[in-house]
Structures are given as structure tokens and as C-alpha cells.
Computed example of a mutant assay.
Amino acid sequence: MISYRKTVTAWLLLTPMIVIILGVSGYPLIKTVYYSLTGAKLIAPDLTDAWIGFGNYIRALSSSNFREAIWHTTYFAVISVGVEMIIGVMVALLLNEVFVGRTLLRAMLILPLALPTVVNAMMWRLIYNPDFGALNALLVQLGMLDAYRSWLGDPATALDMVIVADVWKNFPLVALIALAALQTVPKDLYEAATLDGAGMWNRFWRITLPAILGPLSVALVLRTIEAFKVFDIIYVMTRGGPASSTKTVSFYVYQEAFAYMRVGSGASYALIVVLISACLIAGYMYLIRKHGEA
């Protein structure tokens, strides 16, 4: 009886949250699925159109532009997250050492992460400005460039420049997670390894990396999911250009649904993104469970 009452009480307490989640997420998701099976357009009076089944999905998967957007997104996610992991671990190792000013540097590490993405994107647009940008001025003064260039206006460099801006903002998250994990490693292990003649690299590979691998795997999957859904920094810095060289999947969905007003096809593209994100989340849950069992 007591167990039954606890169960009923728990469900009663959870009911408001479940209702809110279903109202905020469930209903829009159902409508999105419905629209993805139709040819609905935003300019239609009642937002309805002929039922076309999986036609939107077939057209999406056969579209070279959509496949190109998937490639841009994958490139962005792999490079940005990979660089963030490397820089984040290096910064965490540095801030784990004892030196004067360490507390100040730890506090400053939060600043890029605390900046809104739009502000960060605007700041880097000014840095990359082809007429008065700080990056051009620095490279010209150092003799590495003969003249100012348009970093975001060149299809060969635009996406890489956006990646740099994204890395600068998000590597502190990896650094903080790695630093927190490093705090749990007993100092005695390093002292014993040093006495046994282990060098810096041996200590890192045999002690440090295994100790932070679990938290790093969580950071890796979380950042990959966020990077794959990138939209705001692309919208502010390049609007998908030049020549669609920075158009990601999320930007493609926005453009299809709201710029071209093809809600049906835009909904199908969005659901494809959801399915890919769900696969990444499944990988995240698997890593969490695997680390918990270890």
C-alpha cells in the first residue's frame, strides 16, 4: 500500500511537467510530422496542401544541395569539436598546475563561454572585416599578408573562419570538464610514477588520460550534438554564403521553410536532422552507461 501511494504521488507530481512537455514539444512535433508528408506552403491561407507521403523525404535525400549541406555540417562538427577537445585538454592541464595567477586565468576562462553566440559571431565578423579587421591588420604588420583579404567572402576560407569563432567560444566548456576531472586524480599516482621513472608523456597516457576519458567522452558527444545543429553563428556571420560554402543543415531547413516558404519540405528536412541528432543522443547514452559500468 505504501509503495502504491508513493507511485501515485510521484505521478501526480510529474503530471504538470508531462503536460507542459507534451504541449510545448509533443504537439509541434506531431504537426511537423504531418506537414512533412504534405506539400504545405507558408503562403497558403490554411497552411495545407496535397498529401504527398514520403515525397519530401525522397526529394531531400536525392538533393545534391541537401547532401552538400550535410557535408558542410559534418565537416564543421568534426573539425570544431576535434580542435575544441585538443585545446580544452591542453588548457585544463595548464590550469591544473600551481603557478601565480592561476585563479585569475580560471576565472577568465569563463568569459568566452558566457558570451551569447550572436555577440561572439558579431565580434568575429569585425575581426575578419576585409577593410578594418584586426586579423588582416595583424597579419599585414607581421608580413604574412601583402594586402587585406575577405576571409568570410572567400568560399575556400569562410567555413574555416566560422570554425575558429566557434572553437574560441566553446573550448572553455571542454577545459572546465577536463579540469574538474583532473581535480579528482590523486597526486600520489603522479609521485609514484615519477619515482618509477615515468616521463611526462607516460604519465599523461597512463594516468591522466584514463582518469579524464569518461568526462571527456560526455563533453565530446554533447559538443558534437550542438555542433551538428549549428545555426545562429552561421546566420550572423555568413548567412550560408558565399556560394553556399557555409550552408549547414539547420540553415538549409530555415531557408527552405521560411525563406522559400516551403513548409512541407522544410519539415521533412528538420525531421531528418532530428533523426540524426537522435542517433547522436543514443551514442551519448551508450557512452554514459558504458562509463557507469566501468
Rank of each mutant, 00 (worst) to 15 (best):
I2G: 00
S3A: 12
Y4N: 15
T7I: 12
T9I: 06
L12A: 12
T15P: 02
P16I: 09
M17H: 10
I20Q: 07
V24E: 07
S25P: 03
S25T: 14
G26F: 09
P28C: 01
I30C: 02
S36F: 00
K41R: 08
I43G: 00
P45Q: 01
G55I: 01
G55A: 06
I58R: 05
R59W: 09
L61Y: 06
S62P: 03
R67H: 12
A69G: 13
H72K: 06
T74D: 08
A77Q: 05
V81I: 03
G82D: 03
V89Q: 03
M90E: 04
A92C: 13
L95Q: 02
E97F: 03
V98H: 13
V100E: 14
T103Q: 15
L104I: 15
R106Y: 09
L113K: 09
P116W: 12
P116M: 07
V118F: 10
V118M: 08
N120G: 15
A121Q: 01
A121I: 11
L126P: 04
I127A: 05
Y128N: 06
P130Q: 08
F132I: 15
L135V: 07
N136Q: 06
L139N: 04
L145R: 05
R149V: 07
R149G: 06
S150L: 13
A158I: 06
L159W: 08
D160T: 15
D160G: 14
M161D: 07
I163H: 01
V164D: 02
K169G: 06
F171M: 10
L173F: 15
L173S: 14
L176N: 01
I177C: 04
I177Q: 05
T184L: 11
P186A: 09
P186V: 04
D188C: 01
L189H: 06
A198F: 07
G199R: 00
M200R: 15
W205V: 15
W205A: 12
W205K: 10
R206W: 04
I207F: 03
I207S: 03
I212R: 02
L213V: 14
L220W: 01
A227I: 11
F228A: 04
K229N: 09
K229F: 09
V230D: 07
D232N: 13
M237K: 02
T238P: 05
G240V: 05
G240E: 09
S245H: 05
T246P: 05
T246M: 05
Y252P: 07
V253A: 12
Y254L: 00
A257T: 02
F258T: 11
A259Y: 09
R262T: 00
G264I: 01
V273E: 04
V274F: 00
L275A: 11
A278M: 13
I281F: 02
I281Y: 08
M285D: 15
M285N: 14
L287P: 04
I288A: 05
G292S: 03
